[in-house]
Nucleic acid binder design. Sequence first.
DNA 1: TTATGCGAGTTAATCGATTAACCTTTTAGG
DNA 2: CCTAAAAGGTTAATCGATTAACTCGCATAA
Lengths: 329, 329
Amino acid sequence: MRVTLKDVARVAGVSTATVSHVLNGTKTVAEGTRERVEAAVEALGYRLSQPARTLRTGRHRVLGLLLPDLTNPFFPSLAQAVAETARRLGYGLMLSESGADYDSESQALAALEQRVDGVVWIPEALHPVYRPHRPAVIIDRVGPELAAFDSVSSDHRAGGRLQARLANELGHRCIGLLAGPADSISACSRREALCEALGEKRPEWILEVPFSMQLPPEAVERLADTRVTLVIAANDAVAIGALKALKAHGRRVPQDVSLIGFDDIPWAAIVEPPLSTVRQPVRAIGRRAVELLHRRLAGQGGEPTHLVLPVEYVERGSVIALEQEAAAI
Amino acid sequence: MRVTLKDVARVAGVSTATVSHVLNGTKTVAEGTRERVEAAVEALGYRLSQPARTLRTGRHRVLGLLLPDLTNPFFPSLAQAVAETARRLGYGLMLSESGADYDSESQALAALEQRVDGVVWIPEALHPVYRPHRPAVIIDRVGPELAAFDSVSSDHRAGGRLQARLANELGHRCIGLLAGPADSISACSRREALCEALGEKRPEWILEVPFSMQLPPEAVERLADTRVTLVIAANDAVAIGALKALKAHGRRVPQDVSLIGFDDIPWAAIVEPPLSTVRQPVRAIGRRAVELLHRRLAGQGGEPTHLVLPVEYVERGSVIALEQEAAAI
DNA sequence: TTATGCGAGTTAATCGATTAACCTTTTAGG
DNA sequence: CCTAAAAGGTTAATCGATTAACTCGCATAA
């Protein structure tokens, strides 16, 4: 059925070793021989068996990427950067979504690990239940449990402080915080740094919501609170959900209430009004993660590396100064 | 280094065959023996080598999904449906993006095929250059080139007619069409059916744009055309791009100009105003595609099956009747 | 009593590549 | 002219599982 190296070797009149060397360029092969081999490959339509090669060499030449949720536009962007870098370094990419619960995350990771050389992993839980069995680079986690692995993350704390400073400078005293899930490490870092930097003027209310455009009814209700002059959202998806809710309540953004997100997903610039947000360097994150993984797979790099990349504020118009202060500026 | 079946067998005091049978449930094994084997597996932390299994059995237990662009929110939704169904049928999923050009699409497909049992493929080009070497289910293509493969697609022609009927009923006579790329089969079907159904009242202008929120400058310019009362977009992403451009021109949707999209991506409901669109049954498409693939892999099903799934109009408010006619309704 | 079949295990071939070790011829250097 | 190295090839072991074919008791049926 299947055309194997052996068939090619027979047709080309050489040994399988030679065919392999031609295909992989692992040894010099005489011009004429190589041509005969290549002709045979062509004629027979030979296709390498990856499983066989992997079994023999122990290398898949594939990296895995495990992320929480493709419908959050942040992750496709990340996936593209990861895929691009992987391909540049000679790897394929196997992408997997971890699904809702931690069980399915563990399962997905376990399944992934069996088919790749290493994984880039964006864990969901603050206290992950699973430890990778292969080289892994963790994105967005700085906790102690996975400290043994390389990691890359945005400077979430700086992001939180950025938001706080903005609130201060623009004179917002009554803040509503749509924080991310309590067990998300990145959401927690942002929230902590934000609250610390706000100091006295702690948020009027804090609500934990999932990273999704779909706000829980409770959150929608809270957004009717007219005292609040600035809503800080866990990320852009949440911010966009909030935007919709605010409009439904008849509150104008930014005239009646300012709104700020996090991530800078493509849609942030599209919604009305365009969303001011804190940008994560998504392409850099993906690139650096793969590069770290590659280095690790090459056997270099002893101590785990923890990269923290800077974030920046992107002004788009959904945040303005409080009126009384506006005159002063 | 690696713990193999042999190690487990040695520790459990049985042959590798027995271990394999315990692990796969392929033969009855005495209670006590099984327990010893399971204990050994646990104690040694044994993990199956997928490449070895695949080499031996010829089955990967993984399906591939090749799609054009993860940043178009239609595809993540599709990917989720595909992943879910695959998992339900006992497969893993390997997801790959085909990238910009057809070369990289062929490469991606070739790479994918080597690691999966079959692929779900959403080709970009009207005339694909590559023919799959494995069982494949094609999504959104009804052309002759790939007719030998199973396929699933929305009823794009019906979608086009739906849009035309809407235009008729609401009295729009001057239509701008932001058609998709000329080499996209689905875009072409829609466009053809639309134009046929419009008959006399063919669009004032037709512009081919890529499936992206980022409209080419030419398209942005055209949208300033105040004669046009209805803009039909190739898909929701394009529609949302158009929405932004229209606003930039100071034209209100839907008061000054109606706008309709295609797909019904999650964001269609979020933008302002919410976008009326033609919904593709994305979950059903994904599910049916995997089911077809599974059947084919099981060796059943002789003749290729071509499934065409119905679309439906989703009214959200971005399309209204022309004023003079509005009174009549 | 003899065959038959089942239950529980084992043996060993096999999947399709890679690659260390080895063998000839050439080639080049001194 | 002699020797070392390079060039060009081959042989055969190996990666880690699966599974057809076989063995050996023992129970059941004829």
